[in-house]
Design a protein around this nucleic acid. Structure first.
Lengths: 184, 184
DNA sequence: CACAAAACTGTCCGATCGGTCAGCCCCTGA
DNA sequence: TCAGGGGCTGACCGATCGGACAGTTTTGTG
């Protein structure tokens, strides 16, 4: 064998990235990567200092881009920061989509657990309801955002009593879905 | 020892729930739970059929409530489904917050990885920018929602070219933040 | 062609995981 | 009093993980 070294490194990174995104970082073993690449586990450890080093090298560009966005926003005050922050964040996410998947695809893996069988089906129908049974792509994306954002808030510590938090969440979610919350 | 059996079961569930939420299901071993509860690992497996059974018993109420919401929404068509869906989902999430944490707290665990050092700080500042540097709780919650929702969309397969997806995401995010996207 | 460096392999290792099992303790009721 | 069963333990098991290492093949170079 003895392929081109830097090309081999890249091949390892791409394969590992695919596997990490498909399953998850923790659930993907060095054996899995080696099998997919077509080399021995020891070969991986020859090119990289360890499993963590593979992940680090894979995520570094995204982390650096986030740091760049951070410094760019630091100079903007108040309302001026909102639009650049949103656009910058969305661009970042789209540009490093595979990296994002690696971080977030622990959730689908968790949903594969027998205890949660049938949940994905129900969340699909929930998206349908959020979108008002519409097939419009924008409505579907907004619905997906609501499905994701509400639990994220729930998993985070929020200094707000449940009743107020409930009202705020409903209001924000309706705005996301382009439904005016200001009505009876 | 020989404690009250059902009380002991409840104690195990509560401790396990706390540990699962604090770290993650996979990263929490039976040893960890046993140490925290103050019994042997074998004692856990005497009361439960296995690690999965503990998780299942913990999540079952939430899964059932989700199924209930699902059937309740099934009869509603089009726009009539939106508000009940949003309110039902928010209520569900608030009611089973610990269960939600268990599913979602794989992400914070991932963010603890050395490769992602410093990322939480930057996302905190990103939330600040999303909220327009405001301390208003509603603005902070909306910002948190945006931070969560955008990557969730990125990690999901969306049948939309990147450019359109970008525009949709920015628009929806601005609506979530209560910023009117309809302007130059 | 010779030889050193690079590339790679098979094998082994310690740690940790979920789970099993024989047996001990102790309360209960006949 | 003593059999018996529920509650529980410590020791152990096989599987799997990331990683170490000595040794072998391949490659580049004088």
């Amino acid at each position: 064998m003895a392929r081109n070294s830097s090309g081999f490194r890249r091949e390892i990174l791409e394969t590992a990235s695919r596997l990490f995104a498909a399953t998850s970082f923790k659930a993907t073993s060095l054996q899995d990567i080696a099998r997919e690449v077509g080399c021995s586990k020891a070969a991986l450890l020859y090119h990289f200092d360890g499993k963590d080093a593979i992940l680090t090298e894979m995520l570094t560009p995204a982390v650096e881009a986030l740091a760049e966005l951070d410094t760019r926003l630091a100079g903007l005050a108040g309302d001026d920061a909102v639009l650049p922050a949103v656009e910058g964040f969305v661009d970042l996410m789209l540009r490093f989509r595979s990296a994002v998947k690696i971080i977030y695809d622990d959730i689908p893996e968790m949903l594969r657990h027998p205890a949660l069988a049938g949940v994905p089906d129900k969340t699909d129908r929930l998206i349908d309801a959020f979108a008002g049974r519409s097939a419009d792509p924008e409505a579907r994306v907004a619905a997906l955002m609501v499905l994701g954002s509400v639990p994220v808030v729930g998993a985070s510590p929020v200094p707000l009593p449940d009743e107020e938090l409930r009202a705020v969440l409903v209001r924000c979610a309706l705005r996301t879905l382009d439904r005016d919350p200001t009505r009876s």
